[in-house]
Computed example of a mutant assay.
Amino acid sequence: MFRNMRRKKQMLSIEECISVFESGTSGVLAVLGDENYPYAVPLSYAYVDSKIFFHCAKSGHKLDAITNSNKCSFCVIDKDEIIQHKYTTYYRSVIAFGKISIIQDVFKKKEALKEIAKRYSPRHEKGRLEEIDKLFEKVFVLELKIEHMTGKQAIELVNKNTLK
């Protein structure tokens, strides 16, 4: 169902892919938008146990697209260093593929919001919980259940890591 990577030597392990998701601060969600045009939107997120959580408004292009097709991908770029004199880029990124849905269960929604808030404001628990309570009814929480993920890095990074 999912394609195999051509340049297997540059492929990240599952553990490395998870590490990128855990350390990244934003990514780009891609869905099938209006008139079958791709729609890609940058989002904050939390990765937890092979799932990615997002919060969003209760209406808009993203939700319309998800209603029409729950298949999506989510990309996080971990490294993007331009090496001018070599005419190349040292990169590392991960893409997750899966199905996305709105969390309906109130308890699960609250727990997902706590994970997202903790990720971006780890030392402010009281403020996080107050913000969640204040906005709880105004937002949806989306859950991407990962079916496949793949990561890749520049060959120069592979070679650098093998020399260590």
Rank of each mutant, 00 (worst) to 15 (best):
F2A: 11
F2K: 08
R3T: 10
M5P: 00
R6G: 02
R7N: 14
K8N: 12
I14P: 01
I14Q: 13
E15S: 14
I18G: 01
S19D: 13
S19A: 15
E22S: 06
S23A: 13
T25Q: 12
V28W: 00
A30K: 01
A30T: 14
P38L: 06
Y39A: 02
A40I: 01
A40G: 15
V41D: 06
V41E: 06
P42Q: 04
L43Y: 05
Y47E: 04
D49C: 09
D49V: 10
K51V: 07
K51W: 00
I52E: 02
I52M: 04
F54T: 08
F54I: 06
H55C: 11
H55K: 07
K58P: 02
S59Y: 10
G60V: 02
D64T: 08
I66V: 14
I66F: 09
T67F: 12
N68Q: 15
N68E: 15
S69G: 12
S69C: 15
K71P: 04
S73W: 07
F74Y: 09
V76C: 08
D78N: 11
D78W: 02
D78E: 14
K79W: 01
K79Q: 15
K79D: 13
E81L: 14
I82T: 13
I83D: 06
Y87V: 03
T89R: 10
Y90N: 15
Y90C: 09
S93K: 04
V94R: 00
A96G: 02
A96I: 05
F97T: 02
I102D: 03
I102H: 02
I103Y: 10
I103G: 07
Q104R: 11
Q104C: 09
D105S: 07
K109W: 08
K110V: 01
E111R: 06
E111P: 00
A112K: 03
K114E: 13
E115W: 08
R123V: 00
R123W: 04
H124E: 13
R128T: 00
L129Q: 12
E130Y: 06
I132N: 05
K138G: 08
V139L: 09
F140M: 05
L144E: 04
L144P: 01
L144W: 10
K145C: 12
K145M: 14
I146F: 04
I146Q: 09
I146L: 11
E147F: 06
H148A: 03
G151A: 11
K152E: 06
Q153K: 15
Q153Y: 05
A154N: 15
I155C: 01
K160N: 10
K164R: 13
K164F: 08
